[in-house]
Design a protein around this nucleic acid. Structure first.
Length: 149
DNA sequence: GCCAACGTTGGC
DNA sequence: GCCAACGTTGGC
């Protein structure tokens, strides 16, 4: 059992959208490190912190869980999709994803608030220059954040 | 819109 | 394999 933080732009999929969808595929990841987390390390039932990024109020906005093992991201084959990848084929897919189940909305934990918590000093999200859209969360960080919300 | 940080691309 | 140029992310 592992824990993760996954960034979503709320203009794209907000926590409210996610709760309406219930289970949905985490499409659009086009970074190898983030892909590898989904492909190699995520397991059904892993905990997910749902993070709002690139928006007016960035922060942790909800809790979700991994709901499937990994499979090819269908948008890589879709010429109409902004996530289309001409170098990917169904025989040799490049991008993998998992399904995610939204569980609940939380109060918004802003970056500023997260940074005030000494027990979260080591969080990858809070490290300088971090841009990765999927980052591992330790069990301790997970528990601390659930206490804070 | 700015810009720091980082990832990717491609010529050599 | 190096590395400059370019593109993207994402907070502010």
């Amino acid at each position: 059992m592992n824990y993760w933080l996954m960034k979503s732009e709320p203009d794209d999929v907000s926590i409210d959208d996610a709760l309406n969808l219930g289970v949905f595929p985490w499409v659009g990841v086009r970074n190898y490190q983030a892909r590898n987390f989904m492909r190699d390390q995520m397991q059904v039932g892993d905990g997910v912190l749902f993070y709002h990024s690139s928006c007016a109020q960035p922060g942790i906005a909800g809790v979700a869980e991994v709901a499937s093992s990994s499979y090819p991201d269908p948008t890589q084959f879709d010429t109409d999709s902004r996530y289309f990848d001409s170098k990917a084929t169904p025989e040799q897919p490049r991008w993998m994803l998992v399904d995610v189940r939204a569980l609940r909305k939380t109060r918004l934990l802003s970056l500023a608030e997260l940074r005030t918590e000494p027990q979260l000093d080591a969080m990858q999200l809070l490290k300088r220059g971090n841009r990765l859209s999927i980052t591992p969360v330790s069990q301790h960080e997970w528990q601390r954040i659930l206490q804070m919300v």
